[in-house]
Amino acid sequence: MNKNLLIFTSKKNALLLSAFAAVCTLLVSLTYVYTAPLIEQQAQQDLLNKLNQVLVPERFDNNPLENCLHITDKSIFGDDESHVIYRATQQEQPYALVFQTQTLKGYNGLIKLMVAIDKTGKVQGVRTLQHKETPGLGDKIDLEKSDWVLSFNDMKVNSDTDKRWFVKKDGGYFDQFTGATITPRAVVNQLRQSIRYVSSNFDRLFVMENQCVVDEMLPPDSLVQPITTDPQSQFDEQKATLTTKDEVSND
């Protein structure tokens, strides 16, 4: 009798708990569905703002968010994850590559940077996206605290050991901060490596196929192959190859 009662209450509790879980999940899901497009839009806007900061606005006329590559390359990004490189063009001509890089050699955790370089290898802009450096000391890599990152503008990396691309303490061109050398050193060293690598591979990266085509856009093959072929006919060709493939697989 007692046992039955126990089972009954347990069942009741389990049902109640499940009911609450269901209602709570429903509420959260509804909010998620409602806010998801807004959040996506905000993230895109945020990214676009950052891109506009590292690029010179007058020198490109495309939407870099719709022209990009997904690449895994440790010498560019500083880790083994897949990252995105955005490509800015002016009248279909290559202008700049925007990429993220990061280093763990800072004073406190990961420093994430965004860099844009043009086809001559000149830095268009550098911004710190994320860092946890000491406030008042290492956080001067943030444009909000100090305009130190602007000192990279228009600089080029000529070789892997370009003497200017070090902090002054190491014999280079860039200022370290009073009381904080580790942070700027980490940033400068990481930038030297990745900028050098990207600028020497600039053309190769620019001819790679665009992986961020938005549906409404025409196939951007004109970028890859500047030969005067009609985009529509290329599209048809692709279709043709696709159908032949299908046939083969059907066979």
């Binding site: 209450t9 509790n13 109640l16 708990l17 609450f20 879980a21 999940t25 909010t31 806010t35 905000q42």
Partner: peptide, 27 residues
């Protein structure tokens, strides 16, 4: 809400609202 499942239910309710607030702030 019975006495036994009081705390999990409370936490579930609180966590749901926090998640909702988080999503709204994100948006």
């Amino acid at each position: 809400v019975t006495k036994e499942i009081r705390i999990p239910v409370f936490i579930m309710i609180i966590a749901s609202f926090v998640t909702i607030v988080e999503l709204l702030m994100n948006a």
